[in-house]
Amino acid sequence: MFLVKIFIKRRRSILDPQGKAVEHRINSLGYKNVSSVRIDKYIELELNENDFTKAKNNVEKICNDLLANPHLEDYSFELTKK
């Protein structure tokens, strides 16, 4: 069994209007030293698999098929044996 932590990030070259709006609000709270706010996705799941390579291939396929959109997003993940 693996605990899988998946990080999905919108490419930095693509405007993130949510991040921009949050950045403006942080700045307006007085934190003028904050910039480049990005809002990304973090997904956690458990994978009932013992073989590391199989688990890795599984997660890659799930990310490519469903969790990340290749037009917009890149993903990375960490596998931890449970």
Binding site: I14, L15, P17, Q18, A21, N69, H71, L72
Partner: peptide, 16 residues
């Protein structure tokens, strides 16, 4: 677009 029957993607409106 998500099905790849059409190219591209639809994102959150720029003005939110």
């Amino acid at each position: 677009c998500e099905s790849n029957l059409l190219p591209g993607v639809l994102m959150k409106n720029e003005n939110l």
